[in-house]
Amino acid sequence: MTSPILENNRVKLTLLDLNNYTEIATIGQQDKLVLYSPSKIATPEDLKTYAETAVAGYQNKTVIPFLVFDKQTNTYAGTTRFAYINKHDKVLHIGWTWIGHEFQGTGLNMHMKFLMLQYAFETLKFDKVEFRADERNIASRKAIEKIGGTLEGILRKDMLMLDGFKRSSCCYGILKEEWPNIKKTNFAGFE
């Protein structure tokens, strides 16, 4: 499995690895950045562990982690990834996305998701892309719905959070046959 470089006029997604993860260390220290995630990224040690886990997933061919570079501000903005890559069933997840507060609401996430969806459906030829979000994370849920994700169900109390809370995860999906209309409707002018 090779790591693509996904890029348009707004964003560039390159492989996150142990040589470049420190580019997002300052962003990882922002308050409440991963409030609804079981990930720890606030300290240099936490971020290194996060990157090591992502790299191990890449080596096992189940994850492609990306470093997000915002071309508009000429700065690194955060990270995202393909995960649970199942080549047999042609299904993968998009998630583990966190970008600094200053990048949220700027359209950066839409550009990231467009490139990732386009790659998943048009290059990898996958049949389905899934997303998961904490039931309480209204902003992420709305973002997934904005890009065309359909709520398929809620996994009740399926994930233990760092504070001991058992979250429920909303499961969203986009099917390959839905992608052409979603691309035309939600991502007009993104290529």
Score class of each variant (00 low, 15 high):
A77D: 06
K125D: 10
K166D: 08
L35M: 15
K146T: 10
T62N: 11
N137W: 05
L124R: 04
N181S: 13
T73C: 08
P65W: 02
D31N: 15
G189D: 00
T185Y: 05
V91M: 13
L151A: 14
R136V: 09
L175G: 06
Y76T: 03
L67T: 01
F165G: 09
H88R: 14
G107W: 01
K40T: 14
K125T: 08
E135C: 05
K113L: 00
T62W: 04
K166R: 15
W96D: 15
K113S: 03
D17F: 00
Y76Q: 02
E52Q: 14
E145D: 13
A120S: 11
H88L: 13
D89P: 04
W179S: 04
V11R: 08
E122V: 00
N186L: 03
T123H: 03
K183D: 06
E152F: 10
R81H: 09
I154Y: 12
Q59C: 00
T73I: 09
D70R: 06
L35A: 15
H88V: 12
G57R: 02
L6F: 03
K125R: 10
Q72K: 09
F187Y: 05
N109M: 05
K61W: 07
Y58I: 02
P180D: 06
D127Q: 13
M112P: 01
I5D: 15
T80A: 12
Q104P: 03
G95W: 06
F131V: 03
L151I: 10
T97P: 09
T43Y: 07
E130M: 12
K146H: 11
L6V: 01
D134A: 09
I27Q: 09
D89N: 15
K61M: 11
A143W: 02
R132Y: 00
L108F: 05
I144T: 07
H93T: 10
S3F: 11
D17C: 03
E7P: 07
F69Q: 07
Y50R: 07
R136S: 11
T106N: 07
K125M: 07
I5R: 15
M161F: 12
A54V: 02
Q59D: 04
E102W: 00
Y172C: 06
M112L: 00
K113H: 01
V11Y: 09
I99G: 07
Q104N: 08
V129E: 01
L115H: 05
I24T: 08
G107E: 01
I27N: 05
L151D: 05
F126L: 09
I27K: 09
T150Y: 09
T97G: 09
N60E: 13
Q30E: 15
L67W: 00
E102C: 00
I94Y: 06
A51Q: 04
R156M: 07
N20V: 08
H111N: 08
V63E: 09
Y119Q: 03
F165K: 12
D134N: 13
